[in-house]
Computed example of a mutant assay.
Amino acid sequence: MRATEAASALLGEIVAEHGPVLFHQSGGCCDGSSPMCYQQGEFLIGDHDVLLGRVDRMPVYIGGQQFALWRHTQLILDVVPGRGGMFSLDNGRERRFLTRSRAFDAGELDALDATAQPVP
């Protein structure tokens, strides 16, 4: 998981206002298809969620079923104009987080298999 400079800048604004946050990327429709940003402790991580990594020290999780579909890609947190998800901390800022992706090569997939673990 990595982030663009724009995503890091918006994340910095949100953390300055709300304190530590986490991201969750699910596979649903509507708000669930965008990365959602929550204050840490305000979102319950599920038994099947996978910790992808951290962006600027903030954890990024993905739903287990979505991880199974997207496991061959590197997810890149970016920012575009618009409104964030209804409960996401980027809502109301006229910028929202967006997940972009690129396909992993074979070596990167092997490394991912060794590090990605379901949340205990």
Rank of each mutant, 00 (worst) to 15 (best):
T99Y: 09
R100P: 07
H48T: 13
I62D: 00
G32K: 02
V80Q: 15
P81L: 15
G28E: 10
Q74M: 05
R93K: 12
Q66V: 02
R102Y: 01
M86W: 09
Q74H: 12
E42Y: 06
F97K: 01
G28A: 06
V60Y: 15
G92E: 04
G92D: 05
R2L: 12
A106V: 10
Q65C: 04
S8D: 09
Q39W: 00
R93F: 03
T99K: 04
F97Q: 05
R2Y: 00
G85E: 07
H18A: 07
I14A: 09
D105E: 14
V55I: 15
Q117F: 07
E17C: 04
I45F: 02
V55W: 03
S101T: 15
F23Q: 08
F104R: 15
A114R: 08
E17N: 03
G82I: 00
M1E: 12
W70N: 10
C30K: 07
D49N: 10
F43L: 08
H48I: 07
P120C: 07
Q25G: 11
W70I: 07
G64K: 09
P120Q: 08
G82M: 02
V21H: 12
D110K: 08
A114W: 02
R57A: 11
I14K: 10
V119Y: 12
G28K: 01
V80M: 07
L51A: 13
V79E: 13
T4P: 05
S26W: 01
H72W: 03
Q74P: 02
A111D: 09
N91K: 12
G19Q: 08
T99G: 08
V15W: 10
R96T: 07
E13L: 14
G82Q: 06
V15T: 11
T4G: 12
Q40Y: 02
D90K: 09
G85I: 05
C37Q: 02
S34W: 14
I62T: 12
V119N: 09
R54I: 00
C29V: 04
A111P: 04
